[in-house]
Design a protein around this nucleic acid. Sequence first.
DNA 1: TGTCAACTTGACACAGTGTAAAGCAAATAG
DNA 2: CTATTTGCTTTACACTGTGTCAAGTTGACA
Lengths: 193, 193
Amino acid sequence: MSSDSQTTRNRILIATCDLLTAGRPARMSDIAKAAGVSRQAVYLHFDNRADLLVAAMRHNDDASGVEAALEPSRNAATGVARIDAFIVFWGDHAPRIHALANVLWDARKDPAARAAWDERMGAVRDGCAAAIQHLAQDGQLADPWDEDTATDLFWAMLSVRNWEMLTQERSWSQADYVAHLQTQAHRTFVAAA
Amino acid sequence: MSSDSQTTRNRILIATCDLLTAGRPARMSDIAKAAGVSRQAVYLHFDNRADLLVAAMRHNDDASGVEAALEPSRNAATGVARIDAFIVFWGDHAPRIHALANVLWDARKDPAARAAWDERMGAVRDGCAAAIQHLAQDGQLADPWDEDTATDLFWAMLSVRNWEMLTQERSWSQADYVAHLQTQAHRTFVAAA
DNA sequence: TGTCAACTTGACACAGTGTAAAGCAAATAG
DNA sequence: CTATTTGCTTTACACTGTGTCAAGTTGACA
């Protein structure tokens, strides 16, 4: 808890993020070595691998200033603007988290990892829900959607896997990803004027 | 090669599919037990776990008559009808393969498993491409899409993970999945009349 | 000087994959 | 009617990676 004890713990978290985002092997021993610490030291700070991955995910979020990055979406004047801003946010955020997210997903057999994943995805869905709700309040939510269904679909559009398929496997640029998903979201959800 | 040697091999493949679709543990020993065969016998027929999973995927496809199920899409008169039929096909096919697909995805570190995955997803993308191409030939592919980009996006909409999120995690019925994705595809890709 | 906390070291248990080798039983060939 | 081959079993073991345990070190602080 004290800020002193963070040094080693932080080094481990940073090493974990570094290895994963670099796509290098990240066994407990690799992480320990990268953090300049014994393998057992890792277990002094984290119960198990899943626990470490969850903590690394949070650390990564904190480090990349998610809350601040969400402001434009939260402050948007209209539902449409909010949807657009949320897609911009996601286009910027996804590349920062997808390596970590994949590993967390792979660890989903562990209940704690699964819970952390669900909580993360729940947070994304909340963002989607807020944007759709704003759109509905503007009276612009197109047929045949209700807020829940539209939220589900928007949330699925913004899945990590979806982002990966388009930007990693199909080589879409970030700008294309954002622009094209905005187009799709408009046509799908926004009632014609 | 001979049809006699298929009995044991087939029992192993069927046991693998059964365990995976039932969501039960499927270690090599579980599969062997379920097939009524020794663990080593599995290695006589398959080099390793990834090899077995790939074979199980093919076996499952063959057993569920993919080719026949694709006829309605292939024979569709218009691009729009072809898109609709392909989504119907996928809404029917995805539940049959998603358990197996997930396990194959989890085994993606193995190059053979990754190659099998890519080949599978490539086949889906070919189906998407054919539908989009038909739409373009009808002169109905909306701005701002070119055929490649629209194919990418359609393909991403029809990912296994997307299907899972909507039907498994958000409890959409198969009918809702099909209808809503058709709506989204129409609005996204089809030029207004 | 003593003790406490953080870390190291080395050993080990366990699961799961994959390999190796000897044996066995039924079908097939000479 | 033997001899061989084929398909499978049985037992044993090597290897990797996770997680545990216990004893030892080191530096800070009372």
